[in-house]
Write a protein that binds this DNA or RNA. Structure first.
Lengths: 202, 202
DNA sequence: GCGTTACGAGACTGGCCCGTATCGTATTGC
DNA sequence: GCAATACGATACGGGCCAGTCTCGTAACGC
């Protein structure tokens, strides 16, 4: 939405219309290059244009520069939210934890780690990042609140801390490869069960 | 150890000896620039030389290139390990969790997020990263084992998962600024207590 | 057909950087 | 004093890239 790429209510300007294929190709090329390991700042407009089979001018006609293009491209990665069923607290939490760092677009998992420095540096990227994860946090918050109101969870529970507890292990494993010993497949279930029950002897 | 910077057992070569001040100044300049927000690849030898008040040749005389210099510089950030007292399981865990992402060198916390992409890309950086955190994990592992053998913790506890549970929340908060709502100061205590007790109603 | 705008391709200037080389000078052992 | 090496500074060629501009061509409304 940073530029006039959108299907605006334009008063039908004269001349040849913008190519929708070009839009798509540029965004896709950007995400591809990032997913292939290019750092966010090693990424060049020239490389994107070449990969997209597009002239550089075609990119500059649409975006002001690399940053604007990048923010637009990343917005495409938002993906869809998981849908907790609401039957079982445990199952819902496992679903949400398993969805952390996952995305319909498989490139997302390669790209995410590259964004960490940007998020710490640029307010724009930080906002985008928070916009993407906020609804997911909200989803988990609601599941936990339901658990409390149903009497399953302690009423004095600190929900924000609990969310960090559920999210943290999965995120450091997916983004930071924190511990090679851990099994990413079974981790969501293990985390949820451990958080629910605690680790003290009963 | 990548180059001959070390105080080697040299057979006393002739000519003017290398300046130790230059070594120090170059490393310090590198860490300073990183801490000030330069990305790892935006960092240029030229900028380091200027900041260190040193000729470029002085750098190339010591290191083969940016990567070698960087790995050496990062090794300086290792810092010292926290020392659990061994009296109280809870206190020891709070100490260890609080030390996550902390360092005697305050620049470390600024630099860490910048390294995330490198760690995912370069095996050298990944090794360095694992070498730094492995002893800290080991420390936590021992504290948890002691907790089990003292009968405080469940004997069937999955220690690796538990470590992720304790580490994850702190790490995503310090490195990713995951949730602005959370208080970093009180988080270690909250995390340890929640993990120990679980969140189910008793 | 005509004016208008977009297209892919690529030329072009200017900036930043790498890695090497070359200054004149400083510091060591002999 | 003399050879050897290091020093800071700076010049140099080469590469990559940003952003602008200019080709000849293509697609639209009228």
């Amino acid at each position: 939405m940073s530029d006039m790429t959108s299907t605006a209510d334009a008063p039908r300007s004269p001349g040849r219309p913008r190519s929708l294929r070009a839009d798509e190709a540029i965004i896709e090329a950007t995400l591809d290059l990032l997913a292939e390991g290019s750092t966010i700042e090693a990424l060049s407009i020239e490389a994107i244009a070449a990969r997209a089979g597009v002239g550089k001018a075609t990119i500059y006609r649409r975006w002001a520069g690399k940053d604007a293009l990048l923010l637009d491209a990343l917005r495409r990665l938002k993906g869809i939210l998981p849908q907790p069923e609401g039957h079982s607290l445990r199952d819902d939490l496992i679903l949400l934890v398993g969805a952390i760092g996952k995305n319909v677009d498989p490139r997302a998992s390669k790209i995410m780690p590259c964004l960490v420095p940007e998020v710490n540096r640029s307010p724009d990227h930080f906002r985008l990042y928070q916009n993407i994860i906020a609804p997911r946090r909200q989803l988990m918050r609601e599941v936990l609140r339901r658990g409390i109101s149903e009497g399953l969870l302690r009423p004095d529970l600190d929900i924000e801390v609990t969310m960090a507890l559920l999210t943290g292990p999965m995120l450091i494993q997916r983004v930071l490869q924190w511990n090679p010993e851990l099994n990413e497949q079974t981790l969501p279930e293990q985390v949820v069960d451990a958080v629910l029950a605690g680790i003290l002897t009963r």
